[in-house]
Nucleic acid binder design. Structure first.
Lengths: 195, 195
DNA sequence: CCCAGTTTCCTAGGTCCTCTAGGAAGCAAA
DNA sequence: TTTGCTTCCTAGAGGACCTAGGAAACTGGG
């Protein structure tokens, strides 16, 4: 029997492609085995189990996402950078739904520690916010707000959560505008803000 | 054999409880059958299939969520109402993770149309925003921003997405403050806003 | 109280998926 | 060529979803 030339990398790459087609949840080792013309059990020489595969998918997809964002943000600052970041993020989520879903799974904290993709993401995000002159802990709060809104919007959009006929792109642009304003007028630590 | 007294309602109630324990994805008809001391196949007299069950769970949990929010928001307005809404929302998501996850699944659009819970949710949300003096389409955009941020934050928090040591409750309060500011200074339709 | 009809739950079984154990075939280097 | 490692296989256990068809438990009318 000729060998199929499997490696963890090839399997993971096929898995994220499959995820974009059929949805992250529906990526199955059986389906991947069929794709490679191989028996289920053969995959277990390269991948420990389904959870291991999903973790690999998360790292692969996370790297691709931050690459796109980095390219979009490069050379921009302030609101420009924010809009570019947001645009790249949502584009990825819509174009590659399976990969995007992979980036959102819970990952063992011990594996997260030394992930270059995560470090890069943090660097770029914090760097982008430098223009707004925030300092810790406001900086972390602001990052969390941005991630939450971006992710929440894409998640709701993906699950068909927006029923109203209002154009989804326009709402997104408005949300980015609103976030920019919130960052400009950030309610700093220790400061009252009722107005 | 004594009957177990199954109904779609009892099954759904048990299902959301189980979801809070083991996670929405891990709610299985087999596990529910075991819980009722009954064979898998017996459940199919009351529930069409797994998807049907999940839809029922979504409606049940969605109703509970909006009930909590309504109680929290009642009698408040402006920033008070916003904070109450946000607090009730996040509390529900953290206390009842399985139920919360159920509210986020994709649901057939034809079933959504006449859901009282959804109508109530829309009423309360739009009502809360009345204080900010927004008009359509800004109103819809603002609702989408709020839903996105609330959901995104809870989702990221639930999957352990916030690694930094910064207190998660404080960041949440800050996010709500920031949203309040964004709503006060909303970038209205047709208006330039670079500052 | 008994009987017919309905509902509820069962057995049996098909399909698909995950994952393990152990064996054989391919490959590479001595 | 032989040795040993890796890759892929067969075999099979176990769990989940779901269907078809049958039996047991209820229900209401006579």
């Amino acid at each position: 029997m000729a060998r199929a030339g499997l490696t963890p990398e090839r399997i993971t790459a096929a898995a994220v492609d499959l995820a974009d087609e059929v949805g992250f949840e529906n990526v199955t080792l059986s389906a991947l085995a069929r794709h490679f013309g191989v028996k289920d059990a053969s995959l277990y020489s390269h991948v420990r189990n389904l959870q291991d595969l999903r973790t690999r998918m998360a790292f692969l997809a996370g790297g691709e996402l931050i690459d796109r964002i980095a390219a979009a943000v490069a050379g921009r600052a302030g609101k420009d950078a924010l809009a570019a970041f947001a645009g790249a993020y949502r584009e990825f989520a819509l174009e590659r739904p399976g990969r995007y879903a992979a980036t959102q799974i819970r990952i063992d904290q011990s594996l997260v520690a030394d992930s270059p993709a995560l470090r890069r993401t943090a660097e770029i995000t914090y760097g982008m916010l430098r223009a707004y002159g925030l300092e810790e802990p406001d900086l972390t709060d602001a990052v969390r707000l941005l991630r939450s809104t971006f992710h929440g919007y894409c998640a709701l959009e993906a699950t068909g959560g927006f029923g109203a006929p209002r154009d989804v792109q326009r709402s997104w642009d408005k949300a980015v505008d609103a976030l920019h304003i919130a960052l400009r007028h950030w309610p700093r630590e220790g400061q009252q803000n009722d107005d």
